[in-house]
Nucleic acid binder design. Sequence first.
DNA 1: TTGTACGCGTTATCAC
DNA 2: GTGATAACGCGTACAA
Lengths: 326, 326
Amino acid sequence: MATIHDVAKLAGISRTTVSRVLNCHPYVTEEKKRKILNAMKQLNYVPNSSAQRLRKTKTDTIAVFVPRITNPFFSYLVEVMENEAAKFGYKLILCQTHYNKEQEKKFLELLKTKQVDGVILTSIENEWRHFKPYLNDGPIVICNEYDDDAYVPSVYLDQVKGGYLGTKHLIDRGYKRIAYCAGSERRSRLTRDRRKGYEQAMKEASLVIDEDWYLYNAISIEDGKNVFLRLKQIKNRPEAIFTGSDEVAAGLLKAAKDSGWRVPQDLAIIGFDNQPLAQLLGLSTVAQPVEKMGSQTMKVMIQAITGEESKNPTNLSFHLIHRTTT
Amino acid sequence: MATIHDVAKLAGISRTTVSRVLNCHPYVTEEKKRKILNAMKQLNYVPNSSAQRLRKTKTDTIAVFVPRITNPFFSYLVEVMENEAAKFGYKLILCQTHYNKEQEKKFLELLKTKQVDGVILTSIENEWRHFKPYLNDGPIVICNEYDDDAYVPSVYLDQVKGGYLGTKHLIDRGYKRIAYCAGSERRSRLTRDRRKGYEQAMKEASLVIDEDWYLYNAISIEDGKNVFLRLKQIKNRPEAIFTGSDEVAAGLLKAAKDSGWRVPQDLAIIGFDNQPLAQLLGLSTVAQPVEKMGSQTMKVMIQAITGEESKNPTNLSFHLIHRTTT
DNA sequence: TTGTACGCGTTATCAC
DNA sequence: GTGATAACGCGTACAA
């Protein structure tokens, strides 16, 4: 491996000047510059990034926390984040927490050990007090989720509106007994808000909610199938259901159809996220501007790292997509 | 930031010994060890990984190249790779090539600049001669794809068998005019082999292939829809189609149904990969052992990095899943 | 069993 | 404009 030293020797110039050329510093004669670039090419020289990291205390690397990359919502988010990061010369380290507090904490060490310049959170497992100490080591930016205690840049949508929008759509279509299905019932602000939107829409339409209509712990397609089984057993059986993700809705839809139910006649279903499978299945859904969320988050992160003023954020909003399941 | 120096000073012991404790070297008195660990805790000390990387010329980081992370086949592959890597203390850098040669080359620099210990390729855009020089900087392991010129560890399936299996299934179901649909027609060994399997099965059944039945450049759901339009115009219209991915099959299925076609009566469709949406849509498909491929690849990579003998590989094989579209 | 001294490859400071 | 020189934080011969 050729080092900066070798280049300097071959060009007959000092290391310092070579470094200057490398970092595009001014005050270097054109002639020497040419010589140095020549020597570099000749030696096939590339700066050793480990040394640069040590010297500059900068890694040009960002960690992105997601529950699982196979969840399309997150994979789409990560896709645009990676694209955006690459544009600015940043690399992405993928961290899957698997909804696990310990995993999340472990990955946070990346910040303290200077392996990344910053951390992006797209889901939050631990309470904020666990994150706070790490802010000394680099910026943390939240995307999608949000936390009342976290005074850090956050890119998110008002989930009250999301919950409201989906529920209102069902109400407008004439359904009255509407169930609510979501992921873990933990104290995540996102979950709470979305549910608030649901309740708000119901209340507004003077519809009474049956406690049995709250169905939790549904994240995957498989969970969706189970939701159908649970749903069948509810005494005051709902005629429509709001779900927190297209995957759950898809599993539910599949199970219902396999049992001979007609959708939406016997059960109306609305999903969330507008994943590709929603379009394929004709699933009505609440769409989120994933691309914008991802790219904006990355921009905010890079600004936080470089210390620039953050720009005024674009307004992000949901929109409803009506297909055949409602 | 506390350094190893601070710890040594606080504990009243030399830096060397602190380093020894850090790296679990023998020959350290229990008492000093205790003192040092105490000092570390007190100072909230964490070793600076940039310095470690420089010193050890090791990054504990691996780059994974995928075309797009939103393609479920690759996101599942990456999921298990990340899990496996984390088990052994390795981080993953996600590199999306977007099927682009230049992008791929750019990411390869990660190896030369010592930002990663190795590179995993799950798709190959450039010819092998472009990769070869980088082998001096670290191991390259190929997963899923394969290249005749590449003498590097590879984890893959015999795609001739995959193409054969899917086609044979269609033949067994009684179809005779069977079209073949795949991604880019580039000289990738994978594509070639799969096609070879298709042709082998056809020949074996004494079925003649119409040149018009080869449909290329289909990767996404959207592409699948277009394939349907192309298919409709074929003079000698096929009654069944083999596709290279579930996404293409799904788009095709959707377009066909939207046009009032019955599947499989008017057109039989078989997908590839057994993605979640295949199950949801009742799509017959050729399943690949993605989990095994991913974890085995990562094991091979880590062995290549640490210089261990590689174990005898598990045998990986396809299996057919018959659902309702054939 | 422990400490001294040096080097990993770069970049920033300062003097010329 | 340019070049010594000193860090950045850590690991490891080698000596003791």
